[in-house]
Design a protein around this nucleic acid. Structure first.
Length: 412
RNA sequence: CGGGGUGUAGUGAAUCGGUAUCACGCUGCGUUCGGGACGCAGAGACACCGGGUUCAAUUCCCGGCACCCCGACCA
């Protein structure tokens, strides 16, 4: 991709009341654009990051045996009345009337999935059912905040599973938990599994996946040894208390919830009559689990965790491009030739390259490269001669090397 | 929804009663090019909206609205 053709330009100063780091850098780099409070457009660069996250999640979730679908975002009131959530979740739901019929915009999909399952599944032989989708969620947050971390409209991967027994649900629940840990590791984050309350979803204790950052709005109490972690909203213990296995005192930290998993048992199935015939020919209600990861929030969290005073430092797996190719004096035939040649070679090898072909000063190209945060900055200039200069975004020194060395550095 | 803050060009700022100034960005030409280069010439603003006071309002007063922050609530 040629930078000169990319929609969206970097800006020097973030809009003045932008406080949160993720909003500042994502806005300055033109990864996102704000439409209104809590509502953002994903610009080409931002969407590439989201697509990377989506693909990693898809691979891991597919690995648990789930299948991808896509459910509607416009829901009729009736279906929400079946569980009573039209009223109980009124505050978070966008509800409205059109042509004398009432609708809601999706804030979650349990009811929709349950309806789907009861129409298509009738025997224990069809279980377990595991389905997920990536889609927008609308939530009427009392206050949208922290840039992309808490919007009123955001992207989410939600997975639902239905089982013939609590044991089977528990087993899959743990499988998803493990899958989540893998996902967060692949996107570069250290996530901690934390016990928490279920909010409008359930009264049961649930598990959250939290990432440490000052930008977070949650607080967790945890044991540094890793055998205990609870959200302060349910924690019975205080920081400083010794943890049981002798790992030292419990600690408290701010964090962002990047994922959440729930076990509902049969409560929803009973309300919506989602049943199956067991192997004795008897009617049974299905056990439901629900598992979410907020993609846009995940992207914001990554920026909160991986940045420095100059800009974003994307982990390699989620960067919109692996390489930002900067050539000094691109207008010179010799330089342009070398640059274009290298660009093509890299792309042919499967490397994603953002070529800064603009006629601007070196300083500007370098500072934009720092702001945008691609993992590798590659420079071609009169100075580099037959070699190329490679600098990792998270390192300060540049190295001269051959194209082949760069390719092997990139694992190609 | 309570409390606080801010609204002037795409962005950041100045003006604080006499119809708007600067920097960056943008356009054209030229010179440049290893850390946001320079010269010349340009374009770009109903000063958030509505009302009031005044000969005159971006400026003062009232009422809205929007955005940001803190809180309550939440992925």
């Amino acid at each position: 991709m040629r930078y000169s053709k990319l929609f969206g330009k970097t800006i020097k100063d973030a809009p003045k009341d932008t406080v949160s780091i993720n909003a500042q850098y994502l806005l300055r780099g033109s990864y996102i654009d704000q439409l209104m409070s809590g509502s953002y457009t994903l610009m080409p660069l931002g969407l590439r990051v989201i697509k990377k996250l989506e693909q990693i999640i898809r691979e891991e979730i597919n690995d648990t045996g789930a299948q991808e679908i896509l459910m509607p975002l416009l829901h009729p009131k009736d279906i929400w009345n079946e569980t009573g959530r039209w009223d109980s979740a009124k505050d978070v739901m966008y509800q409205f009337e059109k042509n004398e019929k009432e609708y809601a915009l999706s804030f979650t999909h349990e009811e929709i999935l349950l309806d789907l399952v009861r129409k298509h599944v009738s025997t224990y032989r069809d279980f377990p059912v595991k389905m997920y989708h990536f889609s927008t969620k609308f939530r009427n947050e009392l206050r949208a905040k922290s840039g992309i971390l808490r919007g009123r409209e955001f992207l989410m991967k939600d997975l639902y599973s239905m089982h013939t027994s609590q044991e089977d649900l528990d087993e899959y629940y743990e499988k998803v938990a493990a899958s989540y840990m893998k996902i967060f590791e692949r996107v570069g984050l250290k996530a901690l599994r934390v016990q928490a309350a279920g909010g409008v979803f359930t009264d049961n204790v649930t598990d959250e996946f939290q990432v440490f950052t000052e930008a977070g709005e949650d607080e967790i109490i945890y044991c540094p040894g890793g055998d205990f972690a609870q959200n302060v909203e349910i924690a019975q213990v205080k920081e400083g208390k010794e943890c049981d296995l002798g790992h030292g005192p419990l600690q408290k930290a701010k964090s962002v919830e990047v994922g959440n998993i729930f076990r509902f048992g049969t409560s929803y199935s009973e309300k919506m009559n989602v049943s199956f015939t067991d192997n004795m020919g008897k009617k049974q209600f299905a056990y439901l689990g629900s598992y979410g990861i907020g993609l846009t929030r995940l992207m914001g969290t990554i920026v909160e965790v991986f940045h420095d005073e100059k800009g974003i430092v994307w982990p390699e797996n989620v960067a919109p491009y692996q390489v930002q190719l900067v050539s000094i004096k691109y207008e010179l035939d010799s330089i342009r030739q070398k640059t274009d040649e290298l660009c093509e070679k890299l792309q042919k090898a499967g490397v994603e390259v953002l070529l800064d072909d603009r006629d601007v000063s070196v300083g500007q190209k370098f500072s934009d490269a720092d702001l945008l945060g691609m993992p590798y900055r590659v420079v071609i200039s009169e100075k580099t001669q037959d070699q190329i200069e490679v600098k990792k975004r998270n390192e300060s020194d540049a190295k001269l090397m051959s194209t082949e060395s760069l390719l092997s550095l990139l694992g190609k």
